[in-house]
Design a protein around this nucleic acid. Structure first.
Length: 433
RNA sequence: GGGUCGGUGCCCGAGUGGUCAAUGGGAGCGGACUGUAAAUCCGCCGGCUUCGCCUACGGAGGUUCAAAUCCUCCUCGGCCCA
C-alpha cells in the first residue's frame, strides 16, 4: 500500500495545519506507509454542522492519500461534555437524548468516508464501547496517574472556568482524561498512531500523546487545524441571518444550505474552497483567477455551493437546489409567472419555505394579513411596512399599498410565489379547489 | 447579614414627574448602487380594528390630574464591609 507523499504539503497549502507534534517525525511517519488516524465527534445534537466539516474532510483527505481513517463517535465523552470553548457547565445528556443524537450523527459520519475501500477502509467506532465498563479505580490507576492536574489546569478553557465565578465540575474537568484514554485505547487496539482535531482540541489531544508516551506504549502524533473563522475573526458556522449551518436536511433544507454558500462574500470564498472542498489547490487557484476576472458571475461561490451540497446532500438534492435557485434568481429580478410551469412550482415547493393556507384566507382581501399569516412577515404591521418600502412582490409583481390578491392571481389555481426583499422567497399553497 | 449602586425595547446604553413607544450605538429588516458580494447612502425597526387605541421601562402595590421617572414591599445582579 503506497501513500501520497504530498499530503502534509497539501494540508499546509490549504491552511489546514495549525499545530502538529514533532513535524519532521510526523512527515517521516506519514511517508513511511499507511497510518491509522482518528477524529472524534461528540453527539451534542442530532446532526453535525459546518463546524464538523473540516474534521470529516480531513479524514477523507487522509483516506484518499492512502491512510486509514477512524471516525470516533463520542458516545461516552458526549455524555460528559467537553469544556473546550464553553463558558458554562453543560447539561448532561440523558441516555435517550444521547442515543437519538448518535442515531442522527452516525449516518452523517458514514457518508464522508469509504468503508469498503480496498487496503484502507474507514472505521466507525463509539468510545462508549471501551469506556462504559472501566472501573473507576482502574481508570485512576491506568489513566489518572499519568496526567498531572497541573497539566489539566494549563488548558485555557479550564483556567478561565476556574477563575470565573461558576467554577467547573469535576466531571467536565475530567473530560481530558477520557479523551486521552480514547487515544491510548485506539493506539493499543486499533494501531491508531495519530489524532486530529480543531485547534481548541490541542490540549485534549496532547494529553493522549503524553499518556501513550508515559505508559511506554510508543510514539503518537497529533495535528490540529485552525478553527474555521471569518475574515473578521468571528466563528463561522452561521449564515448571515444567524442560522446554524446543519448538515441534516431535516434541520436545514438542501436549498437553504446551497444558498448559504452561494451568498458567501468574496473575501471568504477562497479559504472556504481550500478547506471545505476536495478540489485540488491548483484547480482552486484557476477558479479564483476566473472569479477575479469576472466577479459578478460568482463562479467561485457557485462552485463552492455545488461541491459542498454534493458532499453533504448528494448529487440529486444538489441538482434540485440548483434548479430552484435558477428559478428564483435566474432571471433579472423576479421570476416570470407566465413561464413558471407546474412542475417547476412543485420542485420549488420542496426547496423553499412553503406555507399552506386555506382558501378562505383570500376572502378578506387583506393583503398584509395574508402575508403575516403565511409567515412572510412577522406581524401585520411588518407586512404593511414591507409593502410600503417596496419590499414584497407576488408572482413577480411588486406590491403597492393598493394591490389586491384574489383567486385569479393564483399560479395554476393554487400557488402564490412571494418574494420578500432580494433573497427571501417563499411559496404559499392554497391547495386544490 | 450590613452598606451601596443598579435592573429600560433583540443587545449595549441615555432618560430622574408631563413635550416618552422612550435619545444614541450595534444587530436585524427594506430600498438605492451592484454581482444572490463588499463598501456607501436612505428608510424602517412593540402590537393592533393604524390620523386613534392597546401593551411596555425587573414584579406587586401606592402617591398624583399625570410616573420609566416619587414612595413601600418583593425579587434579581454588581461592588464594598462582615
Amino acid at each position: 500500500m503506497s501513500v501520497d507523499p504530498t499530503l502534509l504539503d497539501d494540508l499546509e497549502a490549504r491552511g489546514l495545519i495549525h499545530d502538529t507534534t514533532d513535524r519532521a517525525a510526523l512527515a517521516e511517519r506519514l511517508a513511511a506507509g499507511p497510518v491509522t488516524v482518528y477524529v472524534g465527534f461528540d453527539p451534542t445534537a442530532d446532526s453535525l454542522h459546518v463546524g464538523n466539516l473540516i474534521g470529516l474532510l480531513t479524514l477523507r483527505r487522509f483516506q484518499d492519500a492512502g491512510h486509514r481513517p477512524i471516525s470516533l463517535a463520542g458516545g461516552a465523552t458526549g455524555m460528559v461534555g467537553d469544556p473546550s470553548g464553553k463558558s458554562d457547565e453543560r447539561n448532561l445528556l440523558d441516555d435517550d437524548a444521547l442515543a437519538a443524537n448518535l442515531a442522527g450523527i452516525v449516518p452523517q459520519l458514514r457518508q464522508f468516508l469509504d468503508f469498503e475501500r480496498e487496503g484502507n477502509p474507514a472505521k466507525l467506532l463509539d468510545n462508549r464501547a471501551w469506556t462504559v465498563g472501566v472501573p473507576y479505580l482502574v481508570f485512576l490507576r491506568d489513566v489518572g496517574k499519568y496526567i498531572t492536574v497541573n497539566q489539566m489546569m494549563a488548558k485555557d478553557s479550564v483556567r478561565s472556568r476556574l477563575e470565573g465565578t461558576d467554577g467547573i465540575s469535576y466531571t467536565e474537568f475530567s473530560y481530558m482524561l477520557l479523551q486521552a484514554h480514547d487515544f491510548s485505547w485506539l493506539f493499543e487496539n486499533e494501531g491508531c498512531e495519530m489524532q486530529m482535531g480543531g485547534s481548541d482540541q490541542w490540549g485534549n489531544i496532547t494529553a493522549g500523546t503524553d499518556l501513550i508516551r508515559k505508559k511506554g506504549m510508543g510514539k503518537a502524533h497529533a495535528l490540529t487545524w485552525p478553527l474555521l473563522t471569518k475574515e473578521d475573526g468571528t466563528k463561522y458556522g452561521k449564515t448571515a441571518g444567524g442560522e446554524t449551518l446543519w448538515l441534516s436536511a431535516d434541520r436545514m433544507s438542501p436549498y437553504r444550505f446551497f444558498q448559504a454558500w452561494i451568498q458567501v462574500e468574496d473575501a471568504e470564498v477562497r479559504k472556504l474552497l481550500l478547506q471545505l472542498t476536495l478540489l485540488p489547490v491548483a484547480a482552486i487557484d484557476a477558479l479564483m483567477a476566473e472569479h477575479e476576472a469576472e466577479p459578478h458571475r460568482r463562479q467561485a461561490q457557485r462552485r463552492l455551493a455545488e461541491e459542498l451540497s454534493t458532499l453533504v446532500h448528494g448529487a440529486e438534492a444538489t441538482a434540485a437546489a440548483v434548479a430552484a435557485s435558477d428559478v428564483v434568481f435566474g432571471g433579472k429580478g423576479a421570476p416570470n409567472d407566465g413561464a413558471l410551469a407546474l412542475e417547476t412550482v412543485k420542485v420549488l415547493a420542496g426547496e423553499i419555505p412553503t406555507a399552506s393556507l386555506a382558501r378562505s384566507s383570500l376572502d378578506t382581501g387583506d393583503v398584509p394579513a395574508l402575508l403575516a399569516e403565511a409567515g412572510v412577515a412577522a406581524s401585520k404591521g411588518e407586512a404593511v411596512r414591507l409593502i410600503k418600502q417596496n419590499g414584497v412582490s407576488v408572482n413577480g409583481a411588486k406590491l403597492s399599498g393598493e394591490s389586491t390578491i384574489d383567486e385569479n392571481d393564483l399560479l395554476h389555481g393554487q400557488f402564490l410565489l412571494v418574494r420578500r426583499g432580494k433573497k427571501s422567497v417563499s411559496l404559499i399553497n392554497f391547495g386544490k379547489d
